[in-house]
Amino acid sequence: MNKSPESRSNETSDTAERTSQEDAEFDRDLAREERVLGGAGLADDAALGADRDLRRTLAQLEAPQLPPHIRETVLDTGRGSRLPMAWAAIAAAVVLSVITLSVADPFESPGRPGDLSAQDWAQLSLAIETLNAQGQQIAQVTQREVGAHLSLPDIELPQMPLRIDALPGSNSFWRWFQPSAPQTR
């Protein structure tokens, strides 16, 4: 059954009345709580005096001490949990360096630059570019995720991406290959 506009109007007026009544109770209770917290002038109101006495009784309940075994467990977790993240960042940097060096080491392959075909050169260039891009991405992600939490003073994470560009192997690599590049192309 649909409600008539009148009943809806009555409902609205009921709600308004109830809300106003609730507001009045809210304000009244707020004033009472202020009096209990103030603690003065409660002699004329036995109920508020009893409220204040209960509040005083409750305030006498002392908080327990945190048991030592819980404290130790919590602090041990705090001590240990950051360290693996720092080591993960270091490990990522080391792995990246090793991969780059192993690919870029000029002494690894005895072949001459002139022996490279255009296809070899293209594949090698692509591999190097991919490695470089992925390495930088890893470093950036690692820096973003771990850098904020790192408290080890000797680690300069913000410089990690720059260090990748400055890896010793990459210079030798490019110096070794670049003169032959125009010829092979």
Binding site: L61, A63, P64, Q65, L66, P67, I70, R71, V74, L75, G78, R79, S151
Partner: peptide, 22 residues
């Protein structure tokens, strides 16, 4: 950060335990 954490544990551990026990 670790020092701040230890201070927070010591300052709040007891009252949190009281809250949970109650």
């Amino acid at each position: 950060m670790r020092q701040r954490f230890e201070q927070l544990v010591d300052a709040n551990g007891g009252r949190l335990l009281q809250l949970a026990r109650l």
